[in-house]
Amino acid sequence: MSPSDSNSPVHSDYDEKVNILTEHVSAASREKPDPTEGNEPPPLIAIMIAGFALIVGAGYLGGTNGGLSNDSFTFVEGYDVPPVPGGGVIEEQKPPGEIWLAEGKKQYSAICAACHQGNGQGQTGVYPPLANSEWVTGGTEQLAMIILNGIQGPITVDGQSYNSLMTPWKDALNDKQMAQVMSYIRMSWGNAEQVAENSGMVTAEMVAHARATHDIPGMKVSHLEGFDKDLPGAKVDPITMEPIGGGAAEGGATDEEPAGEE
């Protein structure tokens, strides 16, 4: 690496006999003297930039110090940016129906998606699809029975026949969660267009009714005969979750929270 420029002893390499620990002073001797301070005047630009920084800093201090009082807290106009354009609405103001379905999706992903897949397509020949399934889009009573009790034996779904077994889910989900899952699968993957008008959403009280009336161990398709109808209970609007006409409309005031905390 060294530019082996001359034979001068200063630049030449030491031979092996030299003890570099005691005799090597070349680094120290080629050094320039220890530094001192000069006396050039400070350049004008330094003073200008410094002045500018001082003004900005002082303005900042004046604008944000809150009167130097221990009781005043930061408030700066515009510190909270408005929601990103195109983003959703504020979480708290999301329509109740959307929250309901989001909860249903959580349950679905946790339990059902393992077999019926996240997109509800099932797995050909093994797990029937939920998308486009007449069992899902039909009456809520038979759907509730299937999920509560599980189902076994031959079943035809969307023109394909399956012969297998699904275990009951009545212990895994409470009424509210079950209602949310049912709402979710009825309202997703194009099923919403196929369900009867206004019966897409399922409420906890509907499920409670089904749970109380249908406890069928080892349920088969034959048990579902005659139950392709909707469970009793007020139908709710898919966005506001407010009860819509008919049904048990008299409980209007309390039905605002159809979620029915269990």
Binding site: Y60, T64, S72, T74
Partner: peptide, 10 residues
């Protein structure tokens, strides 16, 4: 209190 971050920021 607002003055704390304000002084530091300055």
């Amino acid at each position: 209190p607002a003055w704390m971050p304000s002084v530091s920021g300055a």
